[in-house]
Amino acid sequence: MLCYNIYFYDRTGCIFYHEWLRPKPVKQGAGTLEDDQKQMFGLCWTLSNFCAALDPKGTDKPQLGAPRRIGQGCQFRSFTANNYKLHFLETPSGYKVVLNTSQDVGSLQETLAAVYDELLVARCIRSPLYKGPGQPIPNPEGFRGALSQLLRMRGVLPASQSA
């Protein structure tokens, strides 16, 4: 079980990124970290759109590619490739959390909900130093530490992996 990296987005773009382990450097993929974050957002955006449009069960099926309201239709939670797994959480207020782990990890919906509740809300949104969407997270180093600690406590981030 390994954690690779995590992205936090709000309605204006990526507000926080952290990597524990990234054997394939960004340079060989998207090029720059900014492009990498942008592409990751695009992937989740488009995938949610497809998921909602192709949903065989729901009654609320938006047209493929049509603009949607936040959370309209169904939502995807994770996908697995042969060598990693991507976990995704979207809140009704438009925050998105993307966590990449090794593919042997089970569902992390509860963990991501805890990340939203105990970390993003408690340490960022509730902080008087936070100035609203689009602004950086106050005290990012403290946030980083708390993030690793939370994932370690939940048994997602193994003790052998450095923060």
Binding site: T91, P92, S93, L120
Partner: peptide, 20 residues
């Protein structure tokens, strides 16, 4: 300004997952 923060506190605590 209270409202734009309070909403996330509410969503996190109430576990409401969508606002239709």
């Amino acid at each position: 300004n209270i409202g734009i923060r309070l909403i996330d506190e509410f969503l996190a605590k109430s576990k409401v997952s969508r606002c239709g």
